[in-house]
Each structure stands twice: as structure tokens, then as C-alpha cells.
Design a binder for these strands. Structure first.
Lengths: 244, 244
DNA sequence: ATTGCATGATTGGCTGAGCCATTTCGATCT
DNA sequence: AGATCGAAATGGCTCAGCCAATCATGCAAT
């Protein structure tokens, strides 16, 4: 490199975008701006191609990509429709791939530990008495599910959902939901082990007591510890699977 | 419906899969079996089409879908490569999922305050000496931009990007970026005011000192205060705009 | 020996046309 | 009103051709 840096040295590389990417982005913008809502139908391929002045296969590639991304559901002969845009639809497709790299598991749960702590801190301040009561009922019902891992998973999710809602911040709720959803593939096996279910129930109870006491610091700590236990149980399962 | 149920009533619906989906799944199997690893190149489109006895556009649709998902990186003339399958490659959908939330400034900045605190906590523990040095250079350069709001915005983003990267967690990085970009629209005007730029620079410096001191608690607090100041300045601008 | 440039091969990008497969909708019949 | 049928609409796929960008190789200049 010479002594005289190019005047372009500080510029980002030119981002090349294929037509299909631009079409997909256009559709995503319509979703973001609410011009397209869950369940809405996209214009037919031939019409979109004409509107956007591109070929039909380019439109197809864009729509196929959005379908794989979970944004669009496609029915041959029927049309393409915006999906429900929920966490399962949008995050489900990447779940499996994340689970192929162990680093992702560690980072996911570290992030989750921090963020569930944040959620719990706010929930301890914001949850209504009714919400706390409802949470207690969920805990009581959760005891009955210890012998049924499938039912426990449902109860576990409901418990966490109630706290995401109770924190009173829609962004934190979405983030919590996202991280939980992304961890599901990693968690498949751990949630079959009764000892680990017992530990989760114990963690839940501790978290609940801190929330009931309206103690943000204790709630944050309880949530973080719960997530650390969840991480540990997931790693142990992963390790023992590798041995077989 | 008659009293005599069809013998097919209990059968699951036939799952229809397009060719592109099958091609994508075949590639997925190669990734799963480690026949394909991060960085590996896929066979060329023409070859894949021949191998799988499908047309080239069908292969393209499959690869395009995997590219949008972040599983594959495609270079025109160069080929298609398996991505690192890490958070950077795969977590785009989180940003989209978060962008679907109705924008509530108070909640956005409360969430951001918490999460930037988390990011700073980890960055204080994880940033290398080189990264800290680079951050200091950015701060020095930032002084020169105080009289040019456009340049300041660029420098501001670079500063925050370096910390998201420095926290060493792809999930936190993606969430931090996503929340930042959601609030940009509202920050346009605030970032034209020199007094507010001075305050931001002061906040940045305080955050930097805590990071340099490797003090997670101080870094978290500095980051949270900075976000609270950003929120306050945004609301003040919003309010005065509404009056005109 | 090394570096830079030109060229050809390879690989992705895109289009247009044609035809097949599935769904939807409207008209007609019972 | 409900069922059936046919046409229209819409997605699915292939083929062929050509363009755009990258990569590898060979040759010339230093």
C-alpha cells in the first residue's frame, strides 16, 4: 500500500444485489410498512413480473426465497400468501442450521441468560396482581406435568410467555420469544429427562417468588440462573449423545 | 357428512414438495452428514441439475432460497459456498421479526437500554486490546465530526458496531443492530443538534473508559445512561416537532 | 524471478416461450 | 340449496439462448 491512501478507502464495498433479492426486499418492505398483512395474497407471478419489469423466473426465485424464509406460503394454482409472521414461521427455518454449530448454542444461551434477566427485572416492576396470580396457577399446574415431557414443554412455554408479556415491553417480549424459539432444536432431548424437569420447576418457583416479592434484582438473578441451568442440561445431553 | 366415514379420513394430507424444496433438502442432507462443511463449494448449477436430473432453474430456486436463509453464499462467476452457519450468517430473520413490532419509542429505548447494557457488560470482558485501541481511535476521530452531523452519524454507528462485535456474541450483536436500526428514523433530527452530539460524545467517552478498565458493571451503566440520554433527546425533538 | 495484463473458460444471472399441474370460480343441472 | 363440470387463473417446470462476473492460465515487461 502506498503512502497515499485512495480516496475511496473508507467506502464500503459496492453491494451487489440480484434482481431476485431486490424483488424479495420490495415485498419485505410492503410487509414492514403494513401494506401487506398476515394472510394477504401477493399479486400473481405474471402480474408482479410485469409490475416490476422483470422476468417471471426472477419473481419466482424471490418468492421461493421468501417461502423458505417463512414469510410467504405458496399454493400451486392458488397463489402466494403472507404467512402469520409469527416466531415459528420466521425463525423455524434457521433453527436447524443454528444447531449444527456448537458455538451457536453457547452464545444463544449467554444472550438468553442476560435478556431473560432483563425481562424478569422489568416484570418484577410491571406485572399486575392478576398476572402474578395467573403465574402461580401455572406453576401449580406445572407439577402435574412432570411425568409427561410433552405437557411440561407446553406448560414451560406458557410460564415464560406470561413473563415476557408481564415485562410490559413488546420488544423484549419478541426478543425473548425469538431466543426461546431458536433454542428449541437444541433442547429437543433435554426436555425428556425427569430430573431436569424437576430442576426447571424449582427454578421457575424461585423466579416466581422473586417476581411476587417485586424484587427486580432477585428476579433477574433467578432468571439468569435458570437459563444457565437450561444451558448446562443442554450441553450435557449434547455430550452424551456424541459418545454413542 | 354421512354416517359412514371414508376409510381415508384418518390419513394425513399428502405433503407436496416442489422440486426446488427437494433439491434444497438434498443439499441440507449433505450439510448434516458433514459431506459439506462451512466454506465448502457446492457443485456448479449445471452439474447439480444434471446430477439430480432436474432443470437448472429448479436448482437456482433451491440455491436462492438457501442463500436468502443465510445457509449459502453465492458469487456470480465464482460459485456457491456453504456459509459459516454462524449467527452472522443466519440471524437476519431476527431483525425482520423485530421490525414487525409497532413502534413504541419508550419501549424501544427501554429495551435498548437494557440490551446495550448487556452488550457493554460482555464487551468489557471480551474485547481484545486491539479492539479497545481501535475504539479509542474512533473516539478521537469522532471529535472532528461534531460540526458535521452526517459524519457524526457515520462515526456513531461505527463506534456502536465495534462494541456489538466486541461483545463476542452474535445474538446480542444482531439484536443490538436491529434495535438501533428501528429507531433511526426518529433520530434524524436529534442528530442535527450540536449540543446533543456533544452529549453523545461525552457518553461514548464514559463508556469507552469503562470498557478500557474492563469493568462490566460500569460499562453496563454507562451504556444504559447513554441510551436514556438518546431517548430523552429523541422525545424532546419529537415533542417540539409536534408543536410546529 | 516477479508482476501485470490479456484472454479464454467457467459459473452465476436473466429472459422468453412453451407446456404441465393444481386450484378457484362461475355456470348449469338436479 | 347443493353438486358437478368446465374454463380460467395461477403456480411448476423445462429448454434454450445470451449476458455478466470471476477465475485460471499464459505471455510480456520489468
Amino acid at each position: 500500500m502506498g503512502a497515499k491512501p485512495s480516496i475511496f478507502q473508507q467506502e464500503a464495498p459496492i453491494a451487489r444485489q440480484s434482481l431476485a433479492e431486490m424483488v424479495a426486499k420490495r415485498i419485505l418492505e410492503m410487509v414492514t410498512s403494513r401494506a401487506l398483512r398476515p394472510g394477504d395474497q401477493l399479486p400473481p407471478e405474471r402480474e408482479l413480473a410485469e409490475m416490476l419489469d422483470v422476468s417471471r423466473p426472477s419473481v419466482r426465485e424471490a418468492i421461493r426465497g421468501l417461502a423458505i424464509l417463512g414469510v410467504v406460503n405458496v399454493r400451486q394454482g392458488g397463489g402466494a400468501f403472507i404467512s402469520q409472521l409469527d416466531g415459528d414461521a420466521l425463525l423455524g427455518p434457521i433453527r436447524f442450521f443454528l444447531s449444527l454449530e456448537d458455538l451457536n448454542l453457547r452464545e444463544l444461551y449467554d444472550a438468553r441468560s442476560l435478556i431473560e434477566g432483563d425481562v424478569a427485572r422489568r416484570a418484577a416492576q410491571n406485572m399486575s396482581d392478576d398476572e402474578i396470580d395467573a403465574l402461580e396457577h401455572m406453576l401449580d399446574a406445572q407439577v402435574e406435568t412432570l411425568s409427561d415431557p410433552q405437557a411440561f414443554r407446553v406448560a414451560d412455554l406458557r410460564f415464560h410467555e406470561a413473563i415476557w408479556i408481564g415485562c410490559g415491553n413488546a420488544f423484549l417480549k419478541r426478543i425473548g420469544e425469538s431466543l426461546n424459539s431458536l433454542g428449541l432444536e437444541f433442547r429437543r432431548r433435554a426436555s425428556e429427562n425427569p430430573d431436569l424437569l424437576e430442576q426447571s420447576l424449582k427454578d421457575h418457583r424461585k423466579l416466581f417468588e422473586a417476581l411476587k416479592a417485586r424484587d427486580p434484582a432477585a428476579a433477574a438473578m433467578a432468571a439468569e440462573e435458570h437459563m444457565q441451568n437450561v444451558y448446562r442440561s443442554t450441553v450435557v445431553q449434547d455430550t452424551s449423545e456424541n459418545k454413542t
